[in-house]
Amino acid sequence: MFSLRHMPIFRFVLFVWALLFAMSSSAQSIPDDNTMAMIRANYLYQFASNSNWPSEWKKGTFNTAIVGNPEVFEIMVSKYAGKPIGSQALNVIGATEMTVTPQVHVLFVDRSKKAELAKYVKEFKGKSTLIVTNWEGALAQGAHINFLSIDGSIRFELNKTAMTEAVITPGIKILQWAIE
């Protein structure tokens, strides 16, 4: 009698494992998107397009400066730069470019640069620069609009008096959605 040799089971098992490995390597992954940055960038655009600046600020580009948050900066550049704000095109700049930009319409100071807010408040005093922040107590430190985190959602509070002093008129939508 001849003894018939089987294909070693382990060889086949290896084949199955190779298949499983291929499948697990294509396993579900977490997207890298920074959703907080996405929503903040969108709000900055909403603040820009739903507020009114003095007529002398409606010439040239509409400059939005981002300080201390590269991800918000990147999203602003990729999604909103060049989009119209009234008759102006939105221009996104960083902290270094601010020094050579005569008019900064919107300035976002991230909490990572909290210590620098006082400097910016002083620098832009008397100008129509809307200062936006994202930490508790920032309105009292001179910000006009401050992001709040409520159950993982981003909302905002505003200092209407300070905005009036800067001659920036918040639109009805901004007033409607601001947290009292």
Binding site: Q28, D33, T35, N42, S49, K83, W177
Partner: peptide
């Protein structure tokens, strides 16, 4: 968890210059 997180991210990706503030919120 990844399925639901992806679903949320896809929603956030819809945010853009044409999104109304009410819709964004």
């Amino acid at each position: 968890a990844v399925i639901d997180y992806n679903r949320a991210v896809f929603m956030y990706r819809k945010l853009g210059p044409d999104t109304d503030m009410f819709d964004a919120i």
